[in-house]
């Protein structure tokens, strides 16, 4: 069962713009992908509401999971995306 554990690179965590980018990328994959906090329940990675509801902070780990043809490629792409820092806003 292909799985990736990845540390979220964006300081704001999986919210705002980083969450949008991730969800849009997940929707482009050929296989369904889930995302979970370690030991947490997996949720549909294409759902922005479920993804932001995980309340993942920057520097925390998440677990991606997928099955079927192309699962590894999908996970690699999404894991790479999560590891990058996408924060656009400068905090005040």
């Amino acid at each position: 069962m292909p799985e990736r554990t990845v540390t979220v690179g964006s300081k704001v965590g999986l919210h705002a713009r980083p969450a949008s980018l991730f969800v849009q990328a997940a929707a482009r994959q050929s296989v369904p992908v889930t995302i979970a906090k370690p030991d947490g329940d997996p949720v549909d990675a294409r759902s922005i509401l479920m993804v932001i509801g995980l309340d993942v902070r920057g520097g925390q780990d998440v677990v991606l999971h997928a099955d079927g043809d192309g699962a590894d490629a999908a996970l690699d792409e999404l894991a790479a995306l999560l590891a990058v820092d996408h924060d656009a806003e400068v905090a005040s």
């Binding site: 705002a16 759902s47 922005i48 509401l49």
Partner: peptide
């Protein structure tokens, strides 16, 4: 624009 894009994603949310 980022906020509006995120809101459009919410309206199209498959779980919703």
């Amino acid at each position: 624009a980022d906020v509006l894009v995120a809101q459009a994603l919410m309206a199209r949310d498959p779980v919703l």
